[in-house]
Amino acid sequence: MLETEELKKVFKGKTAVEGASLYIDKGESVGLLGPNGAGKSTTISMISTLLKPTSGDVRLNGKSVIKNPSDMRRVLGVVPQEIALYAELSAYENLKFFGRIYGLTGKALETAIQHSLELVGLVERQKEIVKTYSGGMKRRVNIAAAMMHEPEVIIMDEPTVGIDPQSRSHILEMVRKLNKEKGLTVLYTSHYMEEVERLCDRVYIMDHGKIIASGTKDELKSILSSEETVWIELDRPYPAFFKELQSIESIKQAIETEKGIKLILPKGSRVLGKVFQASERHHVQIINVNVQTPSLEDVFLHLTGRKLRD
């Protein structure tokens, strides 16, 4: 539905984005990850027609939007990284204005306002002046403003910075629902890896203006490691059980630890059944089993040599 081709932006001799190519299918939820200054916001500005690329193209359903941005603007909602609201107006007045400039009037406008406010959980405090809101509340209005005209594609640039975990969860759930139930197409930028893990089907990782990796979450994780680690916690050592595990072929390595046994397995091997059969034969009391796969955070660290949030 939406694709970019070799997007490039140079600001006064400084390259912010270099050859970014990405695509988003209809109804997909795609994450864009990258450390500060990676060029995420710049890429988003170019996609959303606010910034002209130095070179490259942005296409919506195969049609370039650079010369003719109207098609894109009609279907697009943008939650900018900055709070883009009138500080002197109330949440209600802000949404009313943003709804009206999209041509909403009368009952439709009123419904859209209340619907957007419900989405972000601010119905009760809608008449208060935005200036007096907490940072998190401003963020939520910032999101609501992008929802007023019921966009088909929504681009969110770090929308949850400064929001408390509960409201964040609420917002994520809202976006996920819109994506899964209403088929809303989402491009999501965040520093919170767990948000992207929860929300997005596919992920692009950017650094220094370039897309350095992309794929589904699993594909990305497999970059880092082809192995899984399984921790088995036991009530006491069982030497015979341990011996038997060592003899199972698909287990690369079995190590005795303080609390039990650590197994290293090739990714995707279906060996846990055999482990449980053995435990029954040896009357082993298993307290806990923990399968550990690498997180996107680990992938990120591996790729960029940096933590996502310093």
Partner: peptide, 13 residues
């Protein structure tokens, strides 16, 4: 400065 102008541009005015 407060980026509301961007929102206005995005509304295709």
């Amino acid at each position: 400065q407060q980026f509301v102008f961007n929102r206005i541009l995005l509304s295709d005015h």
